[in-house]
Design a protein around this nucleic acid. Structure first.
Length: 559
RNA sequence: GGCCAGUUGGUGAAGUGGCUUAACACACUGCCCUUUCACGGCAGCAUUCAUGGAUUCGAAUUCCAUACUGGUCACCA
């Protein structure tokens, strides 16, 4: 009875399919039902999204992948859902040592809440694809049993020849129709190959028709019409590991992912993926195909690249001390452009309070604009308290500027007071776009950094005149007890030397004066800081203290 | 080459047939405020939405062609 079936083409008969499955996967005991039981439907509230970021462990996270992980994380968080990190390491050639840990570290640096991941685990693991091979085999065996998969023994040379022939004949390239040679192998032929020790790949037995269309809805791009898949794609490679598509379907189903966010380049293989979902009879998740983060390279716009663009690396931001939160705020504006306006009106809120939607996402690729990011960062830092800025600055300096770190921790209160100049008020100063900006703007507050001074005198350059001003100031007008008193005295000093104490008077009759109180203030400012550009001079003087002020002014007098 | 998508100022973009003489933000320019700078305020910055045609009383928005840009066609993800 069984022998009668041996010549029958595989896939055409339930009994042969079962026999073939035993032949191909004799030791597979796990079944789909076992998996369904082990990884049941998640018990989440209505509308909760289960999302995932599924990178290959090929290196550090960069801006592009950080953005690609920001999106599913945001959607999972705002719906009280689950965010999963899954490692797609089925291509052994590309994986690097420690890759998983690096990715996880980078994401955690950016405060992503990852509910399930390879290191901390989760109920739906393993989260590394090469640790899921047993599961894939069970699913592969199932497809053989229902006649939707078959072994293929074609060699690389045969496939190359096929491609060449197709190219010459200007036909579509791929393993389909009459080119799918192994599709009609009989049980006996398969057995013979196996007895020979021939390696095989498992292929999908496609039922699609390339001349017919399939319509599907993408959350971002809308309704898309594509030709059906008719290619017998590889389900399991000869080394027993599945390529992307098969693993995607099995994993996203078993992890009960509801929303698949992935690179837009997968869109053309959606018909194939849908055929797989349908072959298994699983409920298809919603797809959102993401446009890659782009960058302008001369005249052309291209995908941001780890190798070509220094600003693609995360280290670019950590080295500069650009706050993670600012990067995320920038991502939020790229994600939904109506976010920015909302945020302007809700300055006290976090981006997490905003409701992001897929249909507000742009259909063309967002262009990365460092200038814009720095502006967002500048605004973000300006709103922090002095303690927050100090804490973040210390954290940054500890790794990137040891000398400065030593200094600011030695003078903690003093530094906080400096950082607090014109901060913690309704319209704070916006001096720093990143933490590495700070030192260059406040160095003069520290004697340790105040050396090799090059004075940038403004309108008054005559050194004798400068000395006269400083001398008189120290002798007669120095007073920092109160801001009004302080400025009154500077006005008196100006007038005594023939400068206008009142700006309006000076503007009305500039010819009556040698200059104005602005010029006098400038001399004081430069004498203490070497720079014409500083925050509020009164605050600076108050913090510097009399001793430092005298020392610095006297240094100029003695020269 | 086949298939798919996109194309709105210097930049990111809003826009889903009349409220658009195209929002908002970044950048830039000018003015005001001001002891410097920054902040802030005001003003300027696309007569036009890749190009051509069609539908309509009316089009950035619908349709058709063309051009350009990107993606994809692996035992890579």
């Amino acid at each position: 009875m069984i022998n009668d079936k041996m010549g029958i083409v595989i896939g055409s008969d339930n009994m042969t399919n079962k026999l073939l499955a035993d032949l191909l996967y004799p030791n597979v005991t796990m079944t789909i039902e076992d998996c369904e039981k082990k990884y049941p439907e998640r018990n989440l509230k209505e509308g909760a999204m289960v999302t995932r970021f599924a990178p290959s462990p090929t290196g550090r996270v960069h801006m592009g992948s950080l953005f690609a992980s920001f999106i599913p994380e945001v959607f999972a968080r705002q719906t009280d859902g689950t965010f999963i990190l899954r490692i797609e390491d089925t291509d052994g050639k590309r994986t690097i040592e420690n890759g998983i840990q690096l990715i996880l570290d980078d994401l955690k640096d950016y405060n992503f809440q990852i509910d399930e991941n390879p290191i901390d685990g989760g109920e739906y693991g393993p989260y590394i694809q090469t640790e899921r091979l047993e599961i894939y085999r069970a699913f592969a065996r199932y497809l053989v049993e229902i006649g939707r998969a078959y072994p293929c023994f074609c060699s690389e040379e045969e496939l190359d020849a096929m491609r060449k022939e197709q190219e010459e004949k200007k036909e579509r390239i791929g393993y389909y129709g009459k080119y799918a040679k192994c599709r009609n192998l009989t049980y006996d032929e398969v057995k013979k190959h196996l007895d020979n020790g021939d390696k095989f790949v498992l292929r999908l037995k496609s039922m699609g028709d390339f001349n017919k269309k399939i319509v599907f809805k993408d959350l971002i791009k809308g309704t898309i019409e594509l030709p059906q898949n008719d290619i017998d794609h590889v389900l399991i490679k000869s080394d027993g590991v599945p390529p992307y598509a098969f693993a995607h379907v099995v994993d996203d189903h078993l992890m009960r992912v509801t929303h698949v966010t992935r690179d837009d380049s997968y869109i053309s293989s959606v018909p194939y993926h849908l055929e797989l979902w349908n072959a298994f009879g699983f409920k298809v998740p919603k797809y959102a195909h993401l446009l890659p983060l782009c960058i302008k390279d001369g005249e052309t716009v291209r995908k941001i690249s780890k190798r070509k663009d220094p600003e693609a690396a995360i280290s670019f931001y950590s080295e500069r001390g650009i706050p993670e939160e600012a990067v995320k705020l920038y991502f939020a504006t790229l994600l939904n452009s109506n976010f920015e306006e909302w945020y302007l009106q809700n300055q006290d809120k976090s981006y997490k309070d905003f409701t992001f939607t897929f249909n507000k996402m742009s259909k063309s690729g967002p262009l990365f604009d460092l200038e814009k990011l720095l502006n967002i960062s500048k605004n973000y830092i300006s709103k922090l308290s002095k303690d927050e800025v100090y804490y973040n600055l210390v954290k940054w300096a500890k790794t990137y500027d040891n000398d400065f770190y030593a200094l600011i921790t030695k003078y903690e209160e003093y530094t906080k007071n400096i950082l607090n100049i014109e901060r913690e008020q309704r319209k704070p100063r916006k001096d720093y776009a990143c933490y590495s900006d700070i030192k260059g703007q406040i160095f003069y507050m520290y004697d340790e950094l105040y050396n090799d001074i090059k004075y940038d005198w403004g309108s008054i350059t005559d050194i004798d005149e400068i000395r006269k001003i400083l001398n008189l100031y120290l002798e007669k007008y120095y007073d920092v007890s109160d801001k009004d008193v302080w400025f009154e005295k500077i006005k008196l000093l100006s007038e005594e030397l023939g400068y206008a104490g009142n700006m309006k008077d000076y503007r009305d009759n500039p010819e009556h004066y040698k200059g104005s109180v602005a010029d006098i203030s400038n001399v004081l400012r430069v004498s203490l800081t070497s720079s014409q550009v500083t925050p509020d001079l009164y605050e600076i003087m108050r913090l510097l203290g009399k001793e430092r002020i005298e020392k610095r002014m006297e240094a100029i007098l003695e020269k």
